[in-house]
Design a protein around this nucleic acid. Structure first.
Length: 161
DNA sequence: ATTTACAATATGA
DNA sequence: TCATATTGTAAAT
């Protein structure tokens, strides 16, 4: 049972997908606005959605969200969930290298695999995959588009060469 | 069932 | 500077 709701922000309309366990996915604004499935939005989802909206707007303003909705990461593999929880520990305005993230989850040689997990991250911004840079502080890549990564980093006051 | 490509990086030539 | 081994996934073959 899924619910899909668009979140208007200063950067465009993000699309939030909720499962029965919480926020399952967050998509960057698409050029063409998707049809919004209204139907009946469960009261619980609406509560989560308010938290998501607040958290997203805080994040886009360069502030650390004070509260996050429950995240449903059951879609990922065990390795990916480890990476994602490591990402959520990165403080706003701070960065890590792919190698550091790999070391943190106990697999220091899986740096490239970490890149793969970041690319599979279903909840960008709130799971701060954009705070992961290459070891030399180069920007690396970004699945949602490098422009987004630069913008998000700039909002947090992080300089990239 | 194998091979390839990825948002990497350390190492050795 | 360039080639390569390493690691987890997904996609292509």
């Amino acid at each position: 049972m899924n619910t899909k709701i668009v979140i208007p922000t200063s950067e465009g309309g993000f699309t939030a997908h909720y499962s029965e366990h919480g926020l399952a996915r967050l998509d960057f604004p698409t050029a063409r606005p998707e049809a919004q499935s209204e139907k009946e939005i469960p009261a619980q989802v609406r509560r989560w959605h308010r938290l998501t909206t607040d958290a997203l707007n805080d994040a886009l303003a360069g502030r650390a969200p004070r509260v996050l909705p429950p995240l449903d990461l059951s879609a990922g593999t065990e390795f990916q969930r480890h990476v994602w929880s490591a990402l959520r520990r990165i403080a706003s305005g701070r960065t890590r290298s792919y190698a550091e993230v790999a070391a943190e989850i106990g697999k220091p040689r899986a740096t490239r695999a970490v890149g793969g997990a970041c690319g599979a991250n279903p909840i960008p911004v709130l799971v701060p995959c954009h705070r992961v840079l290459a070891a030399n502080h180069a920007i690396g890549g970004f699945g949602g588009g490098l422009d987004w990564k630069r913008k998000l980093l700039a909002r947090e006051g992080i300089e990239v060469r």
